[in-house]
Design a protein around this nucleic acid. Structure first.
Lengths: 189, 189
DNA sequence: TCGTTTGTTTAATATTATTTAAACGTTGCT
DNA sequence: AGCAACGTTTAAATAATATTAAACAAACGA
């Protein structure tokens, strides 16, 4: 890193612009802005970085860096990198935004499916028991039936989430959509 | 609402189970759990509800209900309903989870695209100016070029987001994926 | 028009989440 | 083994968000 020339200064300003956009994006999806900046910093860095370098760059505590890095690793949107003769842990951002998208959303869609499927599977037999029990008052029975049908319909949606995850992870859906649109545009000209 | 029979009690317990799953889901996506419960309550209700009914059901203040309802309206996952001779505002949940998914995510994907495309469009000419300026030190120029290429690659990703939004909103992508998988399963048997 | 009902805004309060500094435990090196 | 360099955990502080109650404003009906 040479002296702080005007060109250097300009570079850093543009850098900040991009970094901000990425941090905003993470914010949109409910991720802490600081964690977003952490990702953005790694994303723009040409080299893997250590916790100390990140601390210096973001001006935050090392504890924060440790927590942030762990979250990003869990999301699989940064990776640990090994380099011989380096004692410190090195981290590198996932550079492919498509991969970022897939890791980030499939993880959430899967959790949504699991959480709700669990609730639905528990609820269904209990609704049925209510409906079949002759002691159940008619108004309660009717309500149980409505709810039963409603959550039964929702199963189709969780199947959709499952398909979506599979299509993105295994079926290369992102690239397929892009290709399809490229062809469509070509045929229109 | 009749007496608090055992059946009634059981119904409410199952109700809570489902409501919890939905609130958890909203939480996954960074939406306040209370707002999630608001949606869940409307979702399970057979009738559109007023702010006062929601306040009674959730045991929260009317101000909170007002704020929560506004957020859900913005997301287009609940709708205002008009009924003759009713002074109070009535709200109804979007019952179709597919529509929920589409409203919720396309809104965010579009924002992600706009935020980052704006930053990239601003950054590109500035990187180019740096690269073309003969006064720019070589190390800065090289860095500018690397960043320029990096953000240039990202444009493809924002195009993907755009296609995804269009495919879900106009192209019925969700149903298409479901149908495709139904056929595949049928042919495998 | 006036009084009531309704929804929204506001300012204060309470709660939750983030951040830090320091303590701690681990690892690698000499 | 003993020391030094790390990364993690923790308890406390700080900051951010959510929530409430009360003031307010708009709409309605008599």
């Amino acid at each position: 890193m040479s002296d702080h020339s005007a060109a250097q200064e300009e570079l850093e300003q543009i850098h900040a612009l991009i970094k901000n956009g990425i941090a905003d994006t993470m914010d949109i999806y409910g991720v802490n802005r600081s964690v977003g900046q952490l990702y953005a910093t790694l994303y723009l860095s040409d080299e893997p970085m250590t916790l100390d370098q990140l601390r210096d760059e973001l001006g935050m505590s090392k504890g924060s860096m440790s927590l942030g890095v762990r979250k990003l690793l869990e999301e699989k949107i940064i990776h640990r990198v090994y380099r011989k003769g380096e004692r410190k842990d090195l981290y590198q951002a996932e550079q492919d935004f498509f991969q970022f998208f897939i890791s980030f959303f499939t993880r959430r869609w899967e959790r949504e499916k699991n959480v709700n499927l669990y609730a639905v599977k528990q609820a269904q037999p209990r609704y049925q028991a209510l409906m079949e029990d002759p002691d159940t008052p008619e108004d309660v029975r009717a309500e149980a039936e409505r709810h039963f049908n409603k959550i039964n319909d929702s199963l189709q949606y969780y199947r959709f989430l499952d398909i979506l995850v599979e299509e993105f992870e295994e079926g290369d859906l992102a690239q397929k959509l892009l290709e399809r649109h490229n062809k469509r545009q070509a045929s229109e000209s």
